[in-house]
Every structure is written in structure tokens, then in C-alpha cells.
Design a protein around this nucleic acid. Structure first.
Lengths: 331, 331
DNA sequence: CTGTTAGCGCGTTCAC
DNA sequence: GTGAACGCGCTAACAG
């Protein structure tokens, strides 16, 4: 059993207990290739390590190798929804399977220039929601960060944008199949999330074009019943019968706006969200929405990171059934 | 301007450029007390550092001092809401003001035993939503973690529970002032969040007792309209006219259940949530809820961490106006 | 006062 | 399988 009350256990302690040198401990514990070590010794070392509750110091390891096994995820400074939470959970699990530790930094960039952050942490990879400038990318690369990934459009090097277009496309397809031809698109009010909204709208547009439907009419919908009812009225005036919302919150706002405007959902206006947050299924009417299979995306992200660390090519995302429609009553 | 394309800049580089020794660089950059260094030299060093874009290696510094300036926050394995996100944002900002970096780890404890995590990271402090066992606490302490804080009830050493009772109390007070006397309490379905639910219920109970009202009748409310309507019926049968929900999602479920059961809100049943999530104000009727001033709590948490690192006494949380009722139509 | 020299902390890895 | 040097910043001891 591990002795919990002692000072930090170092590899020297393990070496002493196992009766070997520190080098040997390192070789055994890291399964170093082309170092032949007898099975007996290996066992003694491993036992000793277990007995002492040895965990190598990340600091020392990082110092020596110049690279830590930490993957840094920079959260955007705009309000994040609950999807992000589960997202990160999945990602953490997926990375852990590869021996990597996910660490998330929620700070606005104001707190501390992000440069300081990665110079300090020396992460193996950096994943960010927002894009980096080319200068930032270059700086990070040359500082030893093996992979820089942006989840938004602007990622130059590695392509990795979560299939946002796909999200929009699924929405439009669902609505088109239900017989709607004049679609609306509901933009979020916050300009900071345009990064995500744009590709989704592009997906909707693409689907419309493919089916020779008119271009969707986009409106910005604040998360406020009064303002939303105004948008609803304008859509009605344009002959729009169904709208794709940027996400569930915006969709909920439209529901509230429709209620206020006396417009029946889905009778007079069908509404679709994105994310399938809990309130979506509790809404009136229950909201039809679209979800992304987080586990698959997370696994892919993890695989991409691992590939980059070994400078191998990035895997391709199995785009198949990642985005699914959750059909309820609003559309 | 910083040269972005070079290999990592070390203190030796700065020393060379400034024409001093590495020790001097360290003294200057850390404002080491009882080391007097001429203004001129200080400037040269600082200029050199700025010019090179020098940022000390966290690894080396941690290795040497045995303690990093990272504060590790362990997320619970139960689904986290959006409040948590803003929570962490505030906390990060507050800690940054003290030169500390917040880092969040979302993994379920299954991924990787948490012991490995902090043995590896050597954080200055660990903040967790769930409690630790006494053994875990002891182990962390002796490994150099200066503060272990649990946001739930069980925190032995440092008292720091976010004022959950206060949340419940405010709910009950608001309802009582509105003339309700028979209150209900809506438990979340997920047993993992009982940690948070219990103290809130205790707050409700306390407020009721103080006003000689009957004990609130607690029911578990799944996040599902059908199940929720069943709960609503049972409350009605018991003469309950107002219910405090564990959080907004549960409250939304009650709203959906009431709709289904044909019970008018707030006419026949008043409902209050907690958190003021966006869907709350978009609900039908708009949800009356209770919010906590995250910025204040975050600042307090940060102050507590800093105090502990300097082994000073923890500050007391200004419990005054931290919890506020957001009055809308559901109660 | 001002600033330098030297060794530590801990895991990794090359040469013997 | 081992000895020893290395990576980088901190700080006690010490010299102008």
C-alpha cells in the first residue's frame, strides 16, 4: 500500500528499494526500446514503484524532454454552454487513453496574454476555439508545441473544424423533407460566436442550393422574448415557414417570440435548434434539434493530437453519422 | 519586438544580452527582497527580457521551488451546467490577479486516478467540487499542495462551502413573502448532485422553521415532462402551492409537468429555480429564480487560496448580498 | 551595496 | 545494467 504521509517519492527512492540505479528505473518505467532489462529486475522495479506510490514529477520530466504530456485547451471568452462541458469531458477521456492530460484554461485573454500561458506550461498541443494569428501559430510551433488546433474556421495548417457545416445541412434537410421551402436562419446576438454561426449558415445555404430552394433569410435573434417576436413577425412577412436556429437557446428565444406574437409552432413556423440541451426537451412545444456525437469527435481530436505528436498524418474524421436530428414537436 | 521564430528563450539568453549573470536576471525579474540591484542594471535586464520575449519555464521553476503557480480545479463527473463555466471564468480572472493560473481538469476520476494528476502537476492548490477522503487530503498536503478546498459540505479543514444554504433560504423567503405557506422542494434526479441539493434544502427548511411554516415536502423530479407532471400532481394532493427547485433545469421540468397536468403557474403552483440560465427567461411563464454573484465568490475563493499559500488565515466571505432573487412570472 | 559562483531539484539518456 | 551530464531557474555563500 502506498504510504500517503511521506514527502515526495522520487525515482531515487524507487531505485534504492529495488536495488538498482535510477537509470534502470527510468528504462523500466518507460518501457524504453532497445534497452534490454531482465524480467526479474523489471518486476522488482515495478513493485518498488507501486509500493512507494511513485509518480514521476511532471516538472522534471518536462524540463528534461522539453515537452509535457499536457494538452492545453483554451476556452473562448464568450459564454460557453453546457455542450462545451460534456465536450471537454469526452476529450479528456479520449486523451487520457493516450497518456495525455487535458487541461482547460477558461481565462479571458485579457487576464494574461496567452503567450505567457503556453510558454509556461509547454503543452504538447494547444486546442483553441478561436483562431490564432499566423504569428502566434509560428511562435508556438517553434517553441515546441507540436500541434495547434483551432476549432473555428481559420485553422490554416491542420484541418479540424468540427463539422459545423454538417450541422446546418442536417437542419435544412430535415426541414426540407418536412415540406418547407422558405427557410429562415436565426443568428445569435453575440458577435463573438459568429465564428461558429457562419459555417452553420453555410451548411444551411448549401443544402438549400442543392435542392433549388431559395436562399434562407437570416436574422439576428436576441435572447429576449420581445426582440425575438419581432424577428418572428419579419419572417412571417417574408413567407418563411421554418427556421434553423444557431443553437437551442436561440431556438428557445424564437419559441418565446412566437408565443408572444401569437404564431403557432410548428403550425405556422417550424423551429430547429442545435445541441439538445436539457431545456430543449422541456420547452413548449418540445424542441426539435440536432446533436453531435461528442464521443466520436473527441476521439478524433485526440487521435489528431497524438498523430501530430508523432508527426504522422492526421486521421480523417468519419463524417458519417456524427450529426443526428433529435425529432420532437417544434419541427 | 519579440522574435517569434527562435528556440526557447532561457534566462541565460537574457543574461547574455544584458551582460550580467543568470543570478542577476533571476533577482531582477523576481524582485527578490534583500538583493539590491542598481536601477541601471534592472532596466537592462528587463529590456533584454522584453526584447527576447522571455518567459521562464514553469517546469524548471516548479522543479526548483517544489511548487507551481497553478491552481488545479477538479470538475465533478456529473454533468455541469453553464453556471460552472462562468464560475470558472471569474475564478481564473481572480486568480490571475494574484499571479496564479487556473487550470481545470474535466476528467472523470476513472480516466486517471486523481492522485496521479496532482502528483504530476504539483499545483499550489486544489479546488474540487466533490469532497476528498481524509487520506487523500493528507497525501496532498504532505506532497506540498498548500490548500485543498472542496466546494461541497465535507470540507474539514478550511471552511469554504459556497453559501448553498443561503440559496435555499432566499427561495423560501421569497415564496413565503408572496404568501405561500406549504412549500415543496424539487430534488434533482441525479444522485450525484445530492451534495449540492442537501444544503439548499436545509436552507429552505431553515427558513420555513424560522417562520413556523410546515416542513417542505421534497420530491425527486426527473428532467422529463411526464415524470414531472406526476410530481406536480402529488404536490397538489398535499396542498403545496409553491415549490423551490434544485436548479433552473428542474424548475423547467416542473413547468413542463404543470403544463401537462393542466396546473396553472403561478396561479395554482408557484415555481422557483436557481442559476438564472438563459432558458429560464425564455420559459413559459418566465422563470423566477435566484442567482449568486459569481464574481464575489470567485474573488473570495482566490483570496482564500492566496491566504493559504502564505499560511495566513482565510478571509471570511461577505455573505451579504451574494444571493439575489430574479423575480419573473413563475413565482 | 552589487553582482557572481556554484549546486540543487528530478527524470532522461548517452557512453561505457 | 550503471555512471554522469543535461535541462533551467532559484538562492545561499561569497567576492569586489
Amino acid at each position: 500500500m502506498a504510504d500517503s504521509t511521506t514527502k515526495r517519492v522520487t525515482s531515487a527512492d524507487v531505485a534504492r528499494l529495488a536495488g538498482v540505479s535510477r537509470a534502470t528505473v527510468s528504462y523500466v518505467l518507460n518501457d524504453t526500446p532497445r534497452q534490454t532489462i531482465s524480467a526479474g529486475t523489471r518486476d522488482r522495479v515495478r513493485d518498488a514503484a507501486a509500493q512507494l506510490g511513485y509518480a514521476p514529477s511532471a516538472a522534471a520530466r518536462t524540463l528534461r524532454t522539453g515537452r509535457s504530456d499536457v494538452v492545453l485547451c483554451l476556452l473562448p471568452d464568450w459564454p460557453i454552454g453546457p455542450e462545451v462541458g460534456s465536450n471537454l469531458g469526452h476529450l479528456s477521456t479520449a486523451l487520457a487513453r493516450h497518456g495525455l492530460t487535458l487541461v482547460v484554461h477558461p481565462g479571458n485573454r485579457e487576464d494574461r496574454p496567452i503567450a505567457e500561458l503556453w510558454k509556461a506550461i509547454t503543452p504538447a498541443a494547444v486546442i483553441a476555439y478561436t483562431g490564432f494569428s499566423d504569428a502566434e501559430m509560428a511562435a508556438m510551433r517553434s517553441a515546441g508545441v507540436s500541434l495547434v488546433v483551432a476549432l473555428s474556421r481559420r485553422d490554416r495548417g491542420r484541418e479540424l473544424a468540427v463539422p459545423q457545416e454538417l450541422v446546418g445541412r442536417r437542419q435544412a434537410e430535415h426541414l426540407a423533407q418536412a415540406g418547407h421551402s422558405r427557410l429562415g436562419y436565426a443568428y445569435p446576438d453575440d458577435p463573438r460566436v459568429r465564428f461558429f454561426a457562419e459555417p452553420r449558415l453555410a451548411g444551411v445555404r448549401g443544402a438549400c442550393a442543392a435542392r433549388r430552394l431559395p436562399t434562407p433569410v437570416g436574422l439576428t435573434v436576441p435572447l429576449d422574448p420581445a426582440a425575438a417576436s419581432e424577428a418572428v413577425r419579419r419572417w412571417q412577412a417574408t413567407g418563411v415557414t421554418a427556421v434553423c436556429a444557431y443553437n437551442d437557446e436561440v431556438a428557445l428565444a424564437i419559441l418565446a417570440g412566437a408565443r408572444r406574437a401569437g404564431v403557432a409552432v410548428p403550425g405556422e413556423l417550424a423551429v430547429m435548434g442545435v445541441d439538445d440541451i436539457v431545456p430543449a426537451r422541456l420547452a413548449d412545444p418540445p424542441l426539435t434539434t440536432v446533436t453531435t456525437d461528442q464521443a466520436v469527435v473527441a476521439a478524433h481530436l485526440a487521435a489528431t493530437v497524438v498523430a501530430a505528436m508523432n508527426s504522422r498524418a492526421a486521421p480523417t474524421l468519419p463524417a458519417a453519422d456524427i450529426v443526428r436530428v433529435v425529432s420532437r414537436e417544434s419541427a
